[in-house]
Design a protein around this nucleic acid. Sequence first.
DNA 1: GTCCAGGTCGCGC
DNA 2: GCGCGACATGGA
Length: 305
Amino acid sequence: MTNNSRLSITPLSPFNFEFTAASHGWVDLSPNTWDEGQHALQRIERLSTGQVVLLSITGADSIHRPEISVEVHYVGRLLPKERREITAIVSRMFRADEDLSEFYTLCKKRGKRWARLTAGLGRLLRSPSVFEDVVKTICTTNIQWGGTKGIINRLVTTYGEPYPADPAWRAFPTPQAIASVSFKAFADSVRAGYRSEYIHTLAKRVVAGELDLEALANSDLPTPDLKKQLLGIKGVGNYAAATLLMLLSRYDELGVDTVFREFVHETYFDGKHPADKEAQAVYEDWGEWKYLAYWFDIWQHWSGK
DNA sequence: GTCCAGGTCGCGC
DNA sequence: GCGCGACATGGA
């Protein structure tokens, strides 16, 4: 028997809920799911009190008053501080407070296809915690997307806390849950290849207090210093660091990987393969907004929009 | 069976 | 600072 409670969040305008939900692959990674019928992003969340809830998140994109609605399903009661925590979680996931007006100004200057982004596109979905974003990012390196989904599924199924009303559904595992099992047991169950060690070590460092990942979310360090900290995480190299910087709202670094190289080569260099430096120069004009410019450049290319 | 994936590490120079 | 092989796992 579950109880329901509804929360409402007013994001900065302009805002586009469905586009943000589907802005990159994170919506497909457990415990996130997309309900096509309800147009809702759903996920199980373990709150810091230990309460495990089901969130069903929907949005209305009125230009004048956009709104994110969160239907919370839970067993027992929901404390006021738990409601506040959920509000903070969903705000972070959808970047409700992120001001992209500078980026939009640049888009308008470019005109044509870029101007379309100013209708609230540009927010890229992220996880409630930096820990979850780091683990997921590590699991996107040197692997195909299907492999990433498999690893994250096994991680959630094996170590996530069950939702009491339906124990088959689980939250993303806490660092504690991962750190408390032996490396061998962890590696055998998650089957993440050599990444298992990176994830297990990361969880142990977080639990030991050696690494305060969540502090990075509010850090005012310059991007190069923040990047250095990210590179200090085993399994995070240049590409993963740039992806994580994006997830920390720093867009001045491009994530150079095979997809980036291939896209820039095909789109901007006729025939010849540019060096990475030359390829990155394509987005130099975008300054602090390079990552978003690249991301929506390739998005428009893929989607034909 | 073989190759390699939205790379990264650790080494040697 | 740069080049290079090794790296687990599973899908193509």
